[in-house]
Design a protein around this nucleic acid. Structure first.
Lengths: 224, 224
DNA sequence: GTGAGATTGGTGAGTAAGTTACAGAAGCAA
DNA sequence: TTGCTTCTGTAACTTACTCACCAATCTCAC
């Protein structure tokens, strides 16, 4: 790692600021670039802790029948807690990861990572915070799946992914289904209802004219 | 904390072994006993990190409509990660906690806890391990809720809570529903089917003559 | 361009699960 | 015993998931 790279990394991860230049010289610390749509199974990555410098990684689980649920996403400045679980060897559990964009990862060998965790408080706190945040987000995913009707979850997704000035979206019904952990048909039917209600317009691979106000009001009545 | 108590605590939590006696003298470190069925909301506990010395705590979430899902349980030698999230002030999220048995907690003031986390590697590793395990268990809960049919989840619960030599259980349908995050009627129906199939016998507040082999075989066919 | 193949979306029919609304049975306490 | 509470059973209805299939649209090699 040259000085330039170290700077780029600490820009994304201030928790590394106190790591001295010498420590970065370890030959197995690298930055690698991976291309879109790569689906990671267990591979050489698992001998490393991965820190996301750019791009987007989707962490998800998949059932025997092939249905998926997205657990969370990791972007610039984030780490994958579940991957870390595998790395630290605490469990055989493994989620899957898919690169949704071209992604750059800082790869720290496990022993370096463990060593740095012992020495740098900032890094420790960063990892804590990350774990806690993931814990909270997965917990509220449980809440959503267990308690919320599917059309409310679809509406939430549409609201999250649009703004009042950008009220359309390029996404397939299948992709929404995978995101929410349900079947494509269920999404198609719900979206059709939304269209009939005049809240949006359906096209192949895209949803347009999304009336965010209507979605908001109908699905989360005033007092929310 | 007297020497006696310190010994009891480190028996349950070896991660404290290297904490010197002097550090335990802090006046706000206490062991408190709480009685069964107490449901904890935010209270004085949240100025402390709680370590479970005995008893059993159920951590769960509850919807507006009153339905619950059990996230996990904490017993002797465990800590509650979500409570820790509140404590460390990283998030406003709060799950609920219910004492299922009379429970003894070691209460460490937040500042003491943070200080010890900086100084004792064993404690840090213990907390990591705990966080990771919870993460994994909540993740597999997502998997169960999203993918597994309800009768398989009921069967799993019955199998988990019985042994071949202890093939009965005192539990209400309501309690199972709360555990799994569904409605009581759903449980009653499934259990009735199980009874009709001859896999168990239903009584008020109890399930007897559970044929574990049958549950195992029928719901997770051989190749699992 | 055109035709083949892949991707995406629509729909009907059947099953599973969650909801609503009661009613009956079992346990408990006065 | 009586009355109250808790627990269970059941029917009818709605929502969600599954299975099967087809139609529409896009892609790409030719």
């Amino acid at each position: 790692m040259d000085l330039n790279r170290i700077q780029l990394v600490t820009d994304a991860f201030p928790c590394f600021s106190l790591v001295p230049e010498a420590a970065w010289r370890h030959p197995d610390i690298t930055v690698e670039r991976f291309s879109t749509q790569l689906t990671m199974q267990q591979g050489h990555l698992f001998a490393h802790a991965a820190f996301v410098l750019s791009g987007k990684v989707r962490i998800y689980i998949i059932s025997e029948s092939g249905r998926e649920v997205t657990l969370y996403r990791v972007q610039r400045g984030g780490v994958c807690v579940l991957m870390m679980a595998s790395i630290l060897g605490e469990t055989g559990y493994e989620a899957s990861a898919q690169l949704e964009e071209e992604t750059e990862l800082l790869l720290l060998p496990v022993d370096v990572f463990k060593d740095w965790m012992d020495h740098y408080k900032d890094l420790r706190q960063f990892i804590y915070r990350n774990m806690i945040n993931r814990m909270v987000s997965v917990t509220s995913l449980v809440e959503d799946i267990a308690f919320k009707p599917i059309n409310a979850r679809i509406a939430e997704l549409l609201l999250r992914r649009t703004t009042d000035s950008h009220n359309h979206l390029s996404i397939t019904h299948e992709a929404i289904a995978i995101e929410l952990g349900t079947a494509r048909e269920v999404i198609s039917r719900s979206l059709k209802e939304f269209e009939k209600a005049g809240w949006l317009q359906l096209g192949r691979g895209r949803i347009t004219a999304i009336r965010r106000d209507a979605l908001q009001e109908k699905l989360f009545p005033s007092d929310w």
